[in-house]
Design a binder for these strands. Structure first.
Length: 603
RNA sequence: GGGGGCGUAGCUCAGUUGGUCAGAGCGUCGGCCUGUCACGCCGAAGGUCGCGGGUUCGAGCCCCGUCGCUCCCGCCA
């Protein structure tokens, strides 16, 4: 007989009745009836009930056992007595009638229980992550994560992609995040950077003559966390292809994403053909470049209705500012003063002056708009609004006004809030889309200069000749320029960003010049890359969907920590391992490093 | 760096206008219990009400500061 087990705790069935079995696992739950004692023995595979009678030689040991002790139990598999079967358990028809129990790993009193679903503070859960991971919920999430990654690999390989490994100790990459630095022992005063993404490497792999690269790649960024953004490190499905257009990238990636979502969505519908929404349209309709398409609300510009109207606040905004506009957020079913007032106070809580509204009620066979805006706007214009937005009695419409570039930051959340409050969001589905035609540049109003809008390594959507001919002074033309860059969005979560790369050194130099960077800056920071591009680079492009976010969505979680094995807390600390920690003087000496803490003097 | 929310037993939380307000459930420990599977019953331990200061005859409750957790903004694909 094996030292520890003949079966796992999820294995025994009716067909095993009568055999001698040996199980090892954790004491999940112990029920002591004085005479007879039940132990739910748990391992990775499942749960089996172990029964110990007073006349069993194991009884004395069994009485000492506590939750989460690791034991080995030997005995005969027998049918549970009539009426005591547990249909909720795959092993529920049988039990192990214990003859011998060996304690393999006793447990001190637990800081948090494994049994049960009681919520525990994040801090405790992270410090004792191994206990939390024993719990069914997290355990399942992590296993699902592994299965999702397996599926992604399988799908990528089936499409002719090949997995490469890229360095972890490297130099800074083109993304704009803060780097994690690693001091060099051999080169005093010099540092490696951990890759923010294998961006330059994957491009170099294409320049090296390979094709269809992918990697489940660790990425390191020293930036602050969010619920959907891990501090420090995360994983991307990093992809790059040569001789491709944007359509080729979409054709390669869309089936992988759709396939993996369908495989793990547990029956929830998944978008079959991802719509392609231009960046500008996304802002206009949804107020964000990562729209949640489960929310049916589509905003509309209704400036013309307010222009010169009796509602002076909006009329004046449209008159006085060349960009001034009024957008309508239709709210089907929101047609009550109580709801509109509630949204108004929500807006004020968000730091807005308020959220204007009209709500529609039936009166004398007609539908009338109510509220201060309707009163000032007059019945004709109110009716024009209502028909344009296809609203009926019992509905409402909210307004955001000002310059769109300023109010979209509020309009998007308002659309989400209204959709959420009114129950309009079709949960239980995965709505994916591409966001395309990102602007290449944007205006930096603080520094009064043109900046890269996103990744400076994207190809501008113009011919080489056109682009090189751009006059840096022609601000409007430059700001109207699009990059061949795209995002994938699912349920309002940005999964990924990608681009056709700028593989022409002269275009790259021009692109940086427009953003005000001297050629020497480019040479200094990306000289290696530039040089590589000048020695025969294929047109290439790719994308890098966030693995953690995909898993989070498919597990139905709101926080990445629920799908990462050993996550750090929001302040980028590993409470279990105690990272970061101070280095010893010897380590620092070898690295030629002297630590100056905030408030200390360098001397 | 900034803003919001939270902080009472190991955990989840209650605690009224400032006046028996140091409480419940779960967990832990002890006792009883031969068919439970959220076992049941009895009992016990467990608290600087995050910390510091202030107002008050009196503070878990009000005020100021501070720390921690969390969500968001900045930042970041």
């Amino acid at each position: 007989m094996h030292r520890y087990r003949t079966h796992t705790c999820g294995a025994l069935r009716e067909g095993d009745i009568g055999i001698e079995a040996r199980l090892s696992g954790w004491c999940h739950r112990i029920r002591d009836h004085g005479g007879v004692l039940f132990i739910d023995l748990r391992d990775h595979y499942g749960l089996t009930q172990v029964v110990v009678d007073p006349d069993s030689p194991a009884f004395k040991t069994a009485e000492m056992l506590r939750s989460e002790w690791v034991i080995r139990a030997d005995g005969k598999v027998r049918r549970r007595p009539d009426g005591t079967e547990n249909p909720d358990l795959p092993t529920g028809a049988v039990e192990l009638y214990a003859r011998a129990i060996e304690v393999l790993g006793p447990a001190a009193e637990l800081p948090m229980p494994v049994f049960g679903e009681q919520e525990y503070p994040e801090e405790t859960r992270l410090k004792y992550r191994f206990l939390d991971l024993r719990r069914e919920h997290l355990h399942n999430n992590i296993m699902k994560r592994g299965a999702i990654i397996d599926s992604i690999r399988r799908r990528m390989k089936a499409q002719g992609f090949f997995e490469f490994q890229t360095p972890i100790l490297t130099a800074s990459s083109p993304e704009g995040a803060r780097d994690y630095l690693v001091p060099s022992r051999l080169h005093p005063g010099k540092f490696y950077a951990l890759p923010q993404a294998p961006q330059q490497f994957k491009q170099l792999i294409m320049i090296s003559g390979f094709d269809r690269y992918f990697q489940i790649a660790p990425c390191f960024r020293d930036e602050d966390a969010r619920a959907d953004r891990s501090p420090g490190e995360f994983y991307q499905l990093d992809i790059e292809m040569s001789f491709v257009t944007q359509d080729d990238v979409f054709d390669a990636v869309e089936p992988v994403l759709r396939g993996v979502f369908e495989e793990f969505s547990e029956g929830k519908p998944v978008t079959q053909k991802f719509p392609r929404i231009p960046f500008g349209e996304a802002l206009r309709k949804y107020g964000t470049d990562k729209p949640d398409l489960r929310n049916p609300i589509v905003m509309e510009d209704v400036s013309d209705i307010f222009r010169g109207s009796g509602f002076k606040i909006f009329a004046r905004i449209i008159e006085t500012s060349p960009q001034g506009a009024v957008w309508a957020i239709p709210a089907p079913g929101g047609g009550s003063r109580a709801f509109c007032d509630r949204m108004n106070s929500w807006a004020q809580g968000e730091g807005q002056p308020g959220l204007g509204y009209i709500f529609f009620v039936p009166e004398g066979g007609k539908v009338l708009g109510r509220g201060p805006i309707a009163n000032n706007l007059g019945p004709e214009r109110t009716e024009a609004l209502r028909t344009r937005l296809r609203l009926k009695d019992g509905d409402a419409v909210f307004f955001v006004a000002g310059e769109p570039q300023n109010f979209v930051k509020f309009a998007g959340p308002a659309r989400n809030k209204i959709g959420d409050e009114l129950g309009l969001i079709k949960k239980d589905r995965f709505e994916l889309c591409w966001i395309v035609d990102f602007p290449m540049y944007e205006w930096n109003d603080e520094e009064k200069k043109i900046d890269f809008s996103h990744n400076p390594f994207s190809m501008p959507n113009a011919s080489v000749e056109e682009f090189l001919a751009l006059d840096p002074a022609d601000k409007d033309k430059i700001l109207a320029l699009k990059a061949i860059q795209y995002d994938v969005v699912c349920n309002g979560v940005e999964l990924s960003s990608g681009a056709i790369r700028n593989h022409r050194p002269e275009v790259m130099k021009k692109a940086f010049a427009i953003a005000g960077y001297d050629e020497s800056v480019l040479e200094q920071k990306f000289g290696g890359m530039l040089h590589a591009l000048s020695l025969g680079a294929p047109p290439h492009g790719g994308i890098a969907p966030g693995i953690d976010r995909i898993v989070m969505l498919l597990c139905g979680e709101e926080n990445l920590r629920e799908v990462v094995l050993f996550p750090m807390n929001q302040r980028a600390e590993d409470l279990m391992m105690g990272a970061p920690s101070e280095a010893t003087p010897k380590q620092l000496r070898e690295l030629h490093i002297r630590v100056v803490k905030p408030g200390q003097s360098a001397s």
